[in-house]
Design a protein around this nucleic acid. Structure first.
Lengths: 106, 106
DNA sequence: TATATTTGAAACTGAATGGTTTCATAATTA
DNA sequence: TAATTATGAAACCATTCAGTTTCAAATATA
């Protein structure tokens, strides 16, 4: 049971759930209507998303509203940061990394 | 066999591979030295990364240099774009999404 | 209070995943 | 040419994963 954000967003259903509740908090039942799977399957996805803190819940009577933890989404953004440097700084000269690596001349 | 970028970066070994070749193109053997697994396991990861075009290869004699396809990495960035709007625009007023959703008044 | 509704948990299942060992191929090097 | 080196592919295995069906609990409604 790994269970980090990257594993969480690997599943397309979970990515859709994330996109849906990003717009507004939703209950499991309401979410399930957007999919072909059972409500229980959605419930399991919500559990996984909760475990890695990508979403949080708020009880309202017998309903539970799930909403996105935007701050956690930023962790993906942070991981991308290291590559953003590359695709910005080295964008033009990138194609010859291989040759410089191999010969190591300069 | 799904095989999209999100599934590709779900595995921690693959994320490390990506980080390594982001700095400089590398051969499977050179990469394998950074891990506790066999060279063949790394080879399989490289195959997956290649299939979703996150990396590309360039033959040099009997060696094969793998390098990161930075452009493909940007697709993750693009996906994050929709949430970036939220965490920038709605950052301060976000906490009451639930209540506005439920009553739908306003 | 009896019934509906909303939800999560448990047990099970088939498919996918990540790893290993073994083997084949192609390019160097002795 | 023979041996070594770099690599990918195939067969196999244990574990994880996403889904289902069934069940229990808690809240709301008649």
């Amino acid at each position: 049971m790994r269970r980090d954000i990257f594993q969480a967003i690997a599943d397309p259903t979970r990515r859709t759930i994330i996109a849906l509740i990003a717009l507004q908090a939703m209950t499991p039942n309401a979410l399930a209507e957007h999919f072909d799977t059972t409500r229980q399957a959605i419930s399991k996805h919500l559990k996984i998303l909760t475990e890695c803190q990508l979403i949080s819940q708020q009880q309202a009577g017998r309903e539970i509203y799930y909403r996105l933890e935007v701050s956690k989404m930023k962790e993906i953004d942070s991981w991308l940061e290291q590559f953003r440097k590359i695709w910005e700084d080295r964008f033009n000269e990138l194609d010859n990394i291989l040759s410089t690596t191999k010969s190591d001349e300069k």
